[in-house]
Computed example of a mutant assay.
Amino acid sequence: MNNIKKSRPLYFVIKEDIKEKILSGQYKSGDVLPTESSLCEEYKSSRVTIRRAINELIQENVLERGFGMTARVKSTPVPRSLNHLGGLHEELTQAGIMCFSYILNSEIVKADNLLAQKLSLSVDDDLYMIERLRYANSNPLCYQKIYLPVALCPDLDVKKLAKVSLYETIEKDYGLKISYAKQTIHACMANYRIAALLELNDLTCMLKVNRTTYLDTNECIEYSDSYYVSDRYELSMTLNR
């Protein structure tokens, strides 16, 4: 830290120095700041002073609170259009945003009463259950749980979905045509597990997107719940009258 002005409170000088590091690119969008103890050592200050500087930067929307006591540089919201049906991977790629997924879990499960109803299947039909984290420009954006009928996508290469669009895989690898989807969006609070996976405070508000996707044959191909970090995700639409 250079040129500390004694006339200014130390917390203010620290706050301005962190801002300068963000503007210079030393700290990038989504980066997690060093720990409190590391910042105390760097600035030769107390935890109380560091916390005040961090809290003011959070209030100014420069930083955001992460999981536990961590703080990260505020991410630029990821744009998403509601004007057409598309997968997150293909939409972000078209917008020039790097998108990839981390597969948390995948297994074949039996459809219970709820899933059988949602997917228009029989109870105990085989389903792929896939849990994954979605990233935009290396920043965690979304936790997703997906169910797909095994009968429509036999021998699905789940690992491939870490880098490739699910919808593209369905259409290109299986010759199926995705036609439409029914979707609901509502606000909810992150539970502890999702907050930890997305590196959030467990009191963070999220957008829960529930989607049921259909083929041109009216067969249901996907039932999913997606939890988006609300302030990293921006929805837009065009309304005609």
Rank of each mutant, 00 (worst) to 15 (best):
S24C: 03
L85M: 04
T93H: 13
I54H: 02
A53Y: 01
Q117M: 09
C142M: 10
N61T: 07
L141F: 00
L39C: 03
V48R: 06
S106F: 07
V123I: 09
S106V: 11
E131R: 14
E42C: 10
E56I: 08
Y147I: 04
E90D: 14
P34W: 08
V62T: 03
V78P: 14
N137P: 02
A136R: 07
Y135A: 02
M98V: 05
E16P: 06
M129I: 11
L115W: 05
H84Y: 15
Q117K: 13
K44D: 14
A116W: 02
P34D: 02
I130W: 15
L104S: 04
E56V: 13
K6I: 10
G68W: 00
A136T: 06
E36Q: 12
C40W: 09
S106E: 13
Y143C: 02
S81L: 14
G86N: 11
M129R: 14
V62H: 03
Q59C: 07
N61Y: 10
D125L: 04
G25E: 13
L92E: 02
Y143V: 02
D124N: 07
E64C: 07
C142Q: 15
G86W: 15
R134I: 15
K19N: 13
E36R: 15
Q59R: 05
V73T: 02
P79H: 01
G86D: 13
S122F: 11
S122Q: 12
V32I: 15
K110Q: 06
S7W: 13
K28N: 02
R51D: 03
A53F: 08
L92D: 00
N137S: 07
C40Y: 05
L104C: 09
L33G: 09
K74E: 00
S75C: 05
F67A: 15
Y11N: 06
G66M: 14
S37K: 06
R134A: 11
N61V: 03
A53W: 03
